[in-house]
Design a protein around this nucleic acid. Structure first.
Lengths: 141, 141
DNA sequence: TATTGTTATACTCTATAACTATA
DNA sequence: TATAGTTATAGAGTATAACAATA
């Protein structure tokens, strides 16, 4: 059975999407355990420091209009706070509360525990994988 | 600057999603050039042999109800044909027409040309990447 | 006049449920 | 009764456009 370049490209793409699907499934499951939507969890994870809502939209790669409802839910649960920026009263900096920080840390820990990469690969293997993926992104025309 | 395991897991996940995003963007662009939606293109690519519509839904990982409209569009453009299965008149085998086969081959060739993996990595590197990704999928609990 | 966050609305993608024709 | 494909509809997720407050 001859393995063509097309087969090879197809196999690589399939594997890549498979790993992403696995990663996403794990993340979705984790979000359900935390009673959050995936975007809410991603938002909480992105709030290492207080972040203007528009900037959060950028980090989540979504339209700013979506961040309003997102912040509403997290604020209702007491995980997040809208701080008005003193320098520019139009911008609201989203900041995690003390409760939010606890959840955020638990989420990070769980994320690390369920990471397929950490479970399946040792340190050198992870470094190799990282280098290869970086190369693909760098050399992409 | 200490690199924690959390940083490492995050970096790997970020790279992985980055490569997938790149791959998807390339594919979407290609689909636009072929005046197709991504799902239509994936359907055409999946039709190496005639395939029952329900089986195609399985290959595309979507509900069978979606395949109807999908097949309609491809049939309207003369790329695909609904062949009634002689053994079971309920099933319709979706088969590419001669025109469809031409488009399918062009799509495959373009896909190969624009593959970020083929462009960025040499043979041994691709084999290493493939082995690592397989390991992640295999060893995932 | 331009920009932040908000609101209302529309669009896309996908799934669910009811229907038909075959088995 | 069960299954393949079809149809209509609903839901989630996201974007667009108009708006109020502030710059």
């Amino acid at each position: 059975m001859a393995t063509t370049r097309l087969d090879e490209a197809h196999a690589l793409a399939g594997l890549l999407f498979g790993v992403v699907e696995l990663t996403r499934a794990r993340f979705d499951e984790l979000c359900r355990e935390f009673d959050m939507t995936p975007v809410q969890a991603r938002a909480l994870l992105a709030l290492e420091q207080p972040v203007p809502m528009r900037a959060l939209a950028g980090a989540l790669r979504c339209d700013p209009s979506n961040v309003t409802g997102l912040a509403d839910r997290l604020e209702q649960r007491g995980l997040v706070r809208r701080d008005v920026d003193p320098d520019d009263r139009r911008v609201k900096r989203l900041a995690v509360t003390d409760d939010g920080d606890v959840v955020r840390r638990r989420l990070e820990a769980a994320l690390l525990e369920t990471s397929p990469f950490m479970a399946a690969l040792d340190g050198p293997e992870r470094r190799t994988l990282r280098a290869l993926l970086e190369r693909v992104l760098e050399r992409a025309p």
